[in-house]
Design a protein around this nucleic acid. Structure first.
Length: 419
RNA sequence: GUGGUCGUAGCUCAGCUGGUAGAGCACUCGGUUGUGGUCCGAGAUGUCGCGGGUUCGAGCCCCGUCGAUCACCCCA
């Protein structure tokens, strides 16, 4: 029989590494929660139209990386390739924009893109994101960036940098685009590059070939086209970042793959990773909500790649001395099969009264059972034989110090009532 | 989607110019008649990714395929 394997390019996390994944994800989410963001739990598949209209049909993400399928009712559905479009759809559909603005939400979950897999690039990957919707206020731009930066610092990451730029409003974008296209048309480029430029001329800015870098050195920069209003807002964001001592560099050549970005746009890049070095990114989107049929409100948000942040943490050795913290207070061992039913009952009662505990299963020798107690990470262990059942007293062993103290079995749960 | 590299025990890997597999770690048991972490001893474990070909003989050579990985591309 053919051995089953996971679909190509998906990431999965199982013990013991899953605890690092969980730690990373929780740290990212915690940063959002502590800044007033609330949970938004959304479907992993949406009407295909949502992404075509929201993300943009000419983007690579939409044109060649979507998992699209037809359901039994003939509807075209797509596994979400990113989070913002779904959030906007839900905000519009559920009239959240009628509430006090800004709406501040976070989300976490799996996203899907049919790309060729690579370390840090998976077909199913995990993101934690936030969105602050309804107001165009540079203080919010700063807040969103700070929420991400705070999370990275909390994790202990050091080798990453923040790059920011402003894409201005749609008017400045079109006039810049016109000049950029004119500039590019005077360059001597190969066919593939011309095709790339036709789709999105900005892409040539981050082409890695040195000859293209040279050719693009004098190309018109979007930052020079900013309206007074955009420029002022962008300057404000920089001021706020500086006074918060969040280091950043302005990268006027930054290119983002999703069409909806306007205004402040940013990327967090780790230099401990390979080609897939972006650990998070985001920006403001002015026209998205209106494009999707809602009121014309601005918003800003980010998406952080949990897989990549985990990889970056590991590359920086942050988990080398990570203390495996078990949730268990107590691990109970039945000395022989005769006491197993008693222990099983006891464990069940302790769990009922809120004690986190586990027991030795199977019929292993005491030495082996103690080993599982050790591995479980439980703070205390207790061995129960006929003597203990008869006397009603058990030795509670502190697994760290090795010392034990006598405790009544009937009041065992009292020992763990500390919190 | 394009190109390069790799695939041997649960993990990390060794395996000579082709002669039908090994180490360390982990695991199980014992040394210690009812107490883990250290130490010592013993034991179990492989369709050599999968399919085909060349050969008397393939882990090793050839082709295909699947997967991982690196770069391009793209982006979280």
């Amino acid at each position: 029989m053919r051995e089953l394997q996971a679909p190509k390019g998906v990431s999965e996390y199982f013990p013991p590494r899953s605890q690092y994944f969980e730690f990373v994800r929780e740290t990212l989410i915690d940063s959002a929660r502590k800044s007033g963001y609330q949970l938004m739990e959304l479907p992993v598949f949406e009407d295909t139209e949502l992404f075509k209209r929201g993300v943009g049909e000419s983007t690579d993400v939409v044109s060649k990386e979507m998992y699209t399928f037809e359901d039994r009712g003939g509807r075209s559905l797509t596994l979400r390739p990113e989070g913002t479009a779904g959030v906007m759809r839900s905000v519009i559909e559920n009239h959240l924009d009628k509430l006090t603005l800004p709406i501040k939400v976070w989300y976490s979950g799996a996203f899907f893109r049919a790309e060729r897999p690579q370390a840090g690039r998976y077909r199913q990957f995990y993101q934690v994101g936030i969105e602050a919707i309804g107001l165009n206020d540079p203080e919010l731009d700063f807040e969103v960036i700070a929420v991400a930066d705070r999370a990275f610092k909390k994790l202990g990451l050091k080798s990453y940098r923040l790059e920011i730029t402003s894409l201005g409003d749609s008017k400045t974008r079109t006039s810049h685009r016109r000049d950029l296209v004119a500039y590019i048309s005077n360059l001597n480029l190969d066919e593939a590059t011309v095709a790339r430029a036709a789709l999105n001329p900005l892409r040539l800015f981050d082409d890695k070939r040195p000859e293209i870098q040279v050719a693009m050195a004098k190309a018109p920069l979007l930052l020079d086209y900013l309206s007074a209003e955009s420029a002022e807002s962008f300057a404000r964001v920089q001021e706020l970042l500086a006074s918060a001592e969040i280091a950043f560099t302005i990268n006027p050549r930054m290119v983002r793959g999703l069409d909806y970005y306007t205004g402040t746009t940013f990327e967090f890049v780790s230099d401990k990773l390979g080609a897939q070095s972006g650990i998070g990114g985001g920006g403001r989107y002015d026209g998205l909500m209106a494009e999707l049929g809602g009121s014309d409100l601005s918003g800003i948000g980010f998406g952080l790649g949990v897989d990549r942040v985990l990889l970056a943490c590991e590359a920086e050795g942050l988990f080398d001395s990570f203390e495996i913290k078990s949730d268990l207070d107590l691990f109970i061992i039945a000395l022989s099969p005769a006491e197993k039913a008693f222990v099983s009952n006891l464990v069940n009662q302790l769990r009922d009264s809120g004690v986190a505990c586990d027991m030795a299963y199977g019929d292993r020798a005491l030495k082996g059972a103690m080993k599982s107690a050790d591995k479980s990470g439980a703070k205390y262990s207790a061995v129960i034989g006929l003597d203990e059942i008869k006397s009603g007293i058990v030795a509670l062993k502190d697994m760290k110090s090795g010392e034990s103290k006598e405790v009544r079995i009937s009041t065992l749960s009292e020992e763990f009532k500390t919190n």
